[in-house]
Write a protein that binds this DNA or RNA. Structure first.
Length: 266
DNA sequence: CGGGGCTCCTGTGCGC
DNA sequence: TGCGCACAGGAGCCCC
């Protein structure tokens, strides 16, 4: 579910709601979402810790508790966090010193929670690519020239670029008018520059509209995002292209559904 | 290196 | 209405 804009929305909201508050108790309804340390230790080590900072890196959300204590949350496809009263369906519940709870909700149980001394030394984090906002167009163009994988799978590969997922990769390629199947190194300089710009544009717009609630995703108050209404190709197979009216097509790339306009994405 | 297929899970929506 | 299947915002793994 959550890609960079959704995680960024959660991060900024949590900054508002839970910063400076203390975790008073942890309830674990489904221990399998806790990847480290074991659930009992996880609980014990979190009690009485204050939330000092909220951090986003790619699609990863990190709550800093101490210089050497970080709660690392990967929401994967279906996870989200709800601040407020205790939720029955929550997999893990963090009770806070203000009387409210931070509920970790994840129907598919694919998300991961970790408590570690550092998050930068996590393998997944070490291997993450840069964020588009930290790249210059020149750098991005060079990265594309070095890869021959299809451009869509590449830009949603977290080792290559951190933050894009299956929604915004498709959207950015549509906006840039580029066929998702093109080998990355076949893009002309101008096309690569346009793609760079449109990735930034679509992520910025999605952050502004508080993310896309295509399915389960809600913000930390349980509200839907506003970006799903603005998506142009994602899950719009057979609908008319907003630019040229041709029928949008759906294909699979690296096992992931991919919608695009066969006429205006070249 | 690249891509396909499978896996971890549950939920939904579709066709018959 | 009920059933079975495909598919779903992520990402790791194995295999070719």
């Amino acid at each position: 579910m959550p890609e960079l804009p959704e995680v960024e929305t959660i991060k900024k909201d949590l900054e508002k709601y839970i910063l400076g508050k203390k975790i008073t108790k942890v309830k674990i309804n489904r221990p399998e979402v806790i990847k480290e340390p074991e659930p009992l230790k996880f609980k014990k080590e979190l009690c009485n810790e204050k939330i000092k900072e909220t951090i986003r890196r790619g699609k990863l959300l990190v709550l800093k508790l101490k210089e050497n204590k970080f709660l690392i949350i990967h929401l994967r496809i279906n996870g989200w966090l709800k601040y407020g009263r205790e939720e029955e369906k929550a997999r893990v519940i963090f009770q806070l010193s203000d009387g409210n709870c931070l509920n970790y909700i994840d129907s598919r149980l694919l998300g991961h929670l970790r408590l570690r001394k550092s998050y930068q030394d996590l393998d997944f984090v070490k291997r993450l690519g840069p964020e588009i906002f930290d790249l210059t167009p020149i750098q991005f163009k060079k990265m594309l020239r070095e890869k021959k994988a299809n451009v869509k799978s590449l830009i949603m590969d977290q080792h290559f670029l951190a933050g894009l997922g299956n929604i915004y990769a498709q959207e950015a390629l549509f906006l840039a008018g580029i066929d998702p199947r093109r080998p990355a190194n076949s893009l002309k300089d101008k096309e690569a520059g346009l793609l760079y710009k449109e990735i930034k544009n679509v992520l910025t717009e999605a952050i502004k509209y508080r993310g896309s609630s295509v399915d389960a995703y809600r913000d930390s108050r349980g509200q839907k995002g506003g970006m799903e209404k603005r998506l142009k190709v994602y899950k719009k197979n057979k609908k008319p292209c907003l630019r040229c009216q041709a029928g949008l097509e759906k294909i699979k790339l690296a096992g992931r559904g991919t919608c695009f306009c066969p006429k205006c994405q070249k």
